[in-house]
Simulated scan of single mutants.
Amino acid sequence: MSIKAFTDYLQLERNYSQLTVKAYINDINSFQSFLIEEFGDSQLNKINYTQIRSWIVQLVESKISNRSINRKVSALNSYYKFLLKIGDIEINPLLRHRALKTSKNIQVPFSEAEVAIAIDELKHEDDYEGIRNKLIIELFYTSGIRRIELVNLKLSDVDFSNKTLKVLGKRNKERYLPLLNSVLKTINRYLKERKELGVIEDNQALFLTKKGVRIYETLVYRIIKEYFSLASNKVKKSPHILRHSFATHLLNQGADLNAVKELLGHSSLAATQVYTHNSIAELKKVYSKAHPRSKK
């Protein structure tokens, strides 16, 4: 019963997405299965930190990354905070837990030249999929939209008169993003091709597969990887790197950090500040060239 109540709490009170809720519940169910296997007991509200520690050790021995383990433990911690809130437990067994150390992965953004190659120089077939793929790349780079946000876009989210795009972000928070004239032109081309699809099963979705169903996340990932494999030699090529490039290039051109935060849909400035290391590198170049004492 408490897991069902926790699910409702995440969906209704915290406004978490279905994917996030599913991930939380999967992690809790995984821990519960471990308890049954190792201790013959599945009562989550009667366990201690020693049992949780044993689970963490098993995860480490399974070669799961520390980052993934921390995410699983975080989900469990949220569950115990909920049980504490409703009075089902008196002490959170994870109260004094310290997260495992993780290495910081530096995400290298695409250069402006690489993005230009992917959008302007690579051959985009003049058919439905070619125009759709080009539009996806343009939207990622000119709006900083997340992959799941792009997948969930509706036709009605595009406002041609105001040149804006309505996006439903994390925790169902809406934000409006500006659309460049060049992107609006591509949208118009795409919509003409979309009307020519033989069968459309999802009339509301903006992006569809050629079979007329809503586009899915793995396909979006493959599209970005395919085009940027031709435009860039960087190891990682993904929608998130393109979002990262959007933020970095704005900051390099002097955009206000708070403005970039709003465009990205971040809830805190700290989340946006991870993109500033690239803009600082750019500032150092400008500084070394321009400051009168830099050559001494």
Rank of each mutant, 00 (worst) to 15 (best):
K123I: 12
N70C: 13
D8G: 09
K134C: 08
K4V: 10
K295A: 15
N77F: 11
K211A: 10
I224D: 05
K211P: 05
K289Q: 14
N233K: 15
V60Y: 14
K225W: 00
A118S: 01
T50V: 14
R214S: 10
E282R: 10
L122H: 03
P109C: 01
N152C: 02
I223L: 12
R98H: 12
Q273R: 12
E262D: 06
S156L: 10
P292K: 09
Q32M: 04
Y216A: 08
F228Y: 07
L191M: 13
R171W: 01
R98S: 04
L206N: 10
I3Y: 05
G254T: 01
N66Y: 08
I64F: 12
T218L: 14
N92E: 02
S143F: 11
Y216D: 14
K296A: 14
D127V: 05
V57K: 06
N252H: 03
K22D: 03
R146M: 08
L180T: 00
G212F: 07
S161R: 13
F82K: 06
N29M: 14
I131M: 08
F82E: 05
K163N: 02
F34I: 07
L83C: 11
R214Q: 11
K85T: 02
S232Q: 11
L184M: 13
Q43I: 01
G212Q: 06
I36N: 05
K170Y: 00
G169F: 05
L251F: 01
I117R: 00
D157F: 13
S288I: 10
L250V: 07
K237A: 09
Y141D: 02
L206P: 05
E38W: 07
I69N: 09
R189W: 00
K289H: 11
L59D: 07
S232P: 03
L10G: 01
N105C: 04
S238D: 01
V199S: 15
